[in-house]
Design a protein around this nucleic acid. Structure first.
Lengths: 194, 194
DNA sequence: GTCTATATAATGATAGAC
DNA sequence: GTCTATCATTATATAGAC
């Protein structure tokens, strides 16, 4: 939570910061560069809109967290069988990444540049999400819907496999986000073997 | 390639840099901090051993690349069936990550802070490795050993799933590296479904 | 709200004594 | 090879005119 205002100019600044934080990393992206990309002549003007660089990261990280929860909530509320629920959760997770690539980079990689207590607050929310996701996996195994295995370790494998999409997915590439999501869900559900 | 010498002191500096680059990121890890962790009193003393900070990153990144190739080569040379080869390659890849966590962080995340032409040189070698890995996948599908799918996309999914282990694996944790490697190989080979 | 100028702190790297 | 001192650069952030 920074300012209660949310002007178009601020949103523009946040969009640029999101892109630069992803492209070069939080530390390598300077305030002067962000300012230049929104057609300001010096970094100082930014401080009429934000209190500091870290606020930009904080807002981006929270947008990402909100998006992941928003994608998972309807799946959790549904009454599908666990395996179907898991597939829907996986697809939703991947599509959230592919439609919020900048925010995803902050969520997975750049959050460590947050100072306390924000850092811990973020990690707590991320843990909540992973716990919710893991409950689907555990339920599926308990119901005999999924192969029995260590549910915590399996959830870790699933989520980190899904998250890896952020590294190489290109919106302008030959593959649609849906095709990437479907293929990875198939791979995780059925495996490589015949 | 930096200096032809390779003293114990230099190896110690590289080991510290590797750990700090992983823990805080390349840019956030200062030369003064590296110096302090090898019991030097100021960052200046480091320059009797290296020419610059980037040389440390470069050497670490190349160590990682060498390690990945070293793990893959015997598997490629073997005469196993493609599916067996793939499993061995996956296990070897994961174990290389877990035994070189600092170098893996540089290999996957910090390489972008290399200036040209080193950056491109590194990416070319990494592409070579991924191509070799992908040939096992393609051969397995061609032989009917693996389920038919887009071999390039499948290779991308496999490798990025394996690579994700670096993010959460803790050597002092409850799971051995071998257990992590086996469980992920099982998941990718056979899937979650019954 | 944006500009210019600047305060303040930290960085990578170098120089020279020992 | 390590020390201390320092240079040059860059960073985030602030002050005050407009």
């Amino acid at each position: 939570m920074t300012a209660p205002t949310n002007t178009p100019r601020l949103q523009q600044i946040r969009a640029v910061a999101e892109r630069l934080f992803r492209d070069k990393g939080y530390l390598a992206a300077s305030m002067r560069e962000i300012a230049r990309e929104v057609d300001m002549k010096g970094g100082g003007s930014l401080y009429a809109h934000i209190r500091g660089k870290e606020d930009l990261l904080w807002d981006i990280v929270n947008d990402a967290t909100d998006a992941f929860f928003a994608a998972l909530t309807p799946t959790l509320a549904g009454s599908d069988a666990p395996a179907t629920k898991l597939r829907r959760a996986m697809i939703g997770h991947i599509l959230t990444i592919t439609t919020h690539l900048g925010a995803a980079a902050a969520y997975f990689d750049e959050w460590r540049h947050l100072a306390e207590p924000r850092r811990s607050q973020f990690l707590a929310r991320r843990d909540d999400y992973e716990r919710l996701f893991g409950e689907i996996v555990a339920a599926g195994m308990a119901a005999g819907d999924l192969r029995p295995a260590d549910p915590r370790l399996t959830t870790l494998h699933i989520l980190s496999s899904l998250n890896a999409v952020r590294v190489w997915y290109k919106p302008e590439g030959r593959l649609s986000a849906q095709a990437v999501a479907d293929s990875l869900a198939d791979l995780l559900m059925h495996g490589l073997c015949c």
